[in-house]
C-alpha cells in the first residue's frame, strides 16, 4: 500500500476530490471502476465508520494525518459513499441494483488511518483485519471473522459466527459471539471479557496486576495458558463439564467455599494479583502451562 498521499485511479474512473473537506461521494462518479481511492485530511483522534455488508475490510495505521480509502468493487451494482463531516469519515457501501447477487455486491476495502483513529466497523460477511490502530474500536459482524493486531484502546467486538483473533492487543477488550472461536494471543490488556456460546476460547497473554479476565462459554474448550511466574487469582467453574488444571494453586482469601453445583476450581497462583474468572456450562476448561 502506498504511504504517499497520492490520487490514483485504474480503469475508467478518476476522482478530482483530493483532500476536499465536506461531502465527497465516490458514487457520484460518472462511471464505475473496480478500484476507487480517496483521501481525507483529518485532525487528531479522527473517527472512521465503515458499513460494508459484503467483503473484506483491512485497516492499517500509518504516520500521516490522512485517511486513505481504497475500495475494490466486484461490480458496478454497488456504490461506495465516503463522506467527511469534520473529523469524522463515514464510508458506506450500498446496493444500487435490485437484481444483484451477493457476489456482485462484494466490496473490499483497504483503509489507512492515523494510529489514534477511532474505528466503527460493520461487516456482515467477508472479514475484518485491523493492525496498529490504537484508538477505540467497535466491530460488529455476522459471519465475518475479525483479526486485530497491535490494537489498543477500548475494543468492542461482536460477531454471530465469525471468529475473533487478537494478537498483542492492549487496553480493554470485550468480545461476544454465539459460535465464533476466540484466540487471544500475547495480550497485554487490563480488562478482558470474552463470551461465546459454542466457540472455543484460547487465552495466552499477560496477567497484568489488578487486571480482570473473564472468559465464558456454553460449550467448547476454554484454554488458559500460564507461566509459573504469573500471578493471578483463579475461579474456574464448568457446570456440566470438566476443569483440568496444571497450576499449583494455593487457597485464595477470596474464595471461602466451593459452589454447590458444577465442577469448580479456586485458588491463587503466586500472589494472585490478576483476577481470572472462567466459566462454562458444559464445556471443558483447561488451565495449562505454556509450552
Amino acid at each position: 500500500m502506498s504511504t504517499q498521499p497520492s490520487l490514483r485511479s485504474q480503469r475508467h474512473w478518476k476522482t478530482t476530490g483530493l483532500l476536499v473537506p465536506g461531502l465527497l461521494l465516490l458514487s457520484a462518479a460518472p462511471a464505475w471502476a473496480d478500484r476507487l481511492e480517496q483521501h481525507f485530511k483529518v485532525a487528531a483522534h479522527p473517527v472512521v465508520t465503515i458499513h460494508n455488508p459484503n467483503g473484506t475490510i483491512t485497516v492499517r495505521a500509518w504516520t500521516k494525518s490522512d485517511v486513505m480509502v481504497v475500495a475494490k468493487r466486484a461490480t458496478g451494482q454497488v456504490a461506495v459513499d465516503a463522506e467527511q463531516n469534520g473529523n469524522r469519515i463515514d464510508i458506506l457501501t450500498r446496493q444500487i441494483s435490485d437484481t444483484a447477487s451477493p457476489d456482485d455486491l462484494r466490496t473490499d476495502f483497504e483503509i489507512s488511518v492515523p494510529e489514534d483513529t477511532e474505528l466503527q466497523i460493520h461487516n456482515d460477511s467477508g472479514g475484518v483485519n485491523v493492525s496498529n490502530v490504537l484508538g477505540d474500536m467497535n466491530v460488529d459482524t455476522i459471519a465475518a471473522g475479525v483479526d486485530l493486531e497491535d490494537a489498543a484502546g477500548y475494543l468492542t467486538v461482536k460477531t454471530v459466527s465469525g471468529s475473533f483473533q487478537c494478537v498483542r492487543c492492549a487496553g480493554r477488550l470485550e468480545v461476544t459471539s454465539i459460535s465464533g472461536n476466540f484466540r487471544l494471543i500475547d495480550l497485554r490488556s487490563y480488562y478482558v471479557r470474552a463470551q461465546t456460546s459454542e466457540g472455543n476460547i484460547l487465552f495466552n497473554g499477560a496477567f497484568l496486576p489488578n487486571a480482570t479476565y473473564v472468559l465464558k462459554n456454553y460449550s467448547g474448550v476454554i484454554e488458559v495458558r500460564f507461566s509459573p511466574g504469573d500471578s493471578f487469582d483463579l475461579s474456574a467453574t464448568s457446570l456440566k463439564g470438566k476443569v483440568n488444571n496444571e497450576a499449583k494453586l494455593i487457597p485464595s482469601p477470596h474464595h471461602h467455599f466451593l459452589p454447590k453445583f458444577g465442577n469448580a476450581l479456586f485458588g491463587a497462583l503466586n500472589s494472585g494479583r490478576a483476577k481470572v474468572d472462567v466459566n462454562s456450562f458444559d464445556g471443558t476448561i483447561n488451565i495449562l502451562k505454556r509450552d
Binding site: P102, L105, D124, S125, I142, A143, V160
Partner: peptide, 11 residues
C-alpha cells in the same frame, strides 16, 4: 446474502 442468512438461522 446466503452466508448471512445461514449464519443467523444456524446460530
Amino acid at each position: 446474502d446466503p452466508v448471512v442468512t445461514a449464519s443467523l438461522h444456524d446460530n
